[in-house]
């Protein structure tokens, strides 16, 4: 597996083409923060706050589902009123639990393991960042 650090020159090049002056990438392995034009510095590499499988203030044995990307957290598909997964119901590994919306794009959030959807840890519609805890699944 390649290290995310190997991607920094490419990311810096992509950044240079845009008007963006800070870029933060957080994932299971850590966090990368790129800044230019004198934007304030931040820790270059810190442990990620949350990742799938890492319980965080949740019931013992529960698996926390971390956000796989950024966007507005959507419990239901925009076509339907019914949530994709109801709190307290059984879910199976791979099942779509929610969506992250950026403009017209929707990215699915899938269950990392089977179990009971014990808790929803984010408000419907809330802006969500990579790694934010979204659900707890108890075995």
């Amino acid at each position: 597996m390649t290290s995310p650090l190997d991607q920094i020159p490419r990311l810096a090049a992509l950044l240079a083409e845009t008007g963006i002056d800070t870029l933060e990438l957080a994932g299971p392995e850590g966090r990368v923060f790129l800044a230019r034009n004198g934007a304030p510095a931040a820790p270059a590499h810190a442990p990620a706050e949350a990742a799938a499988g890492e319980p965080q203030g949740s019931a013992p044995g529960a698996v926390t589902v971390a956000s796989p990307g950024i966007g507005a957290f959507r419990r239901a598909h925009p076509l339907h009123a019914q949530p994709l997964a109801d709190e307290g119901t059984a879910v199976v590994a791979g099942q779509v639990l929610a969506l992250l919306q950026v403009g017209a794009l929707l990215q699915p959030v899938r269950a990392p393991s089977s179990g009971i959807l014990a808790a929803v840890r984010r408000e419907d519609g809330a802006l969500t960042g990579h790694g934010d805890p979204l659900f707890d699944i108890s075995p």
Binding site: P78, L79, A104
Partner: peptide, 12 residues
């Protein structure tokens, strides 16, 4: 690779 879907234009 990333799985993505679209908001149907009927809604957008």
């Amino acid at each position: 690779g990333t799985e993505i879907a679209l908001v149907p234009p009927g809604l957008a």
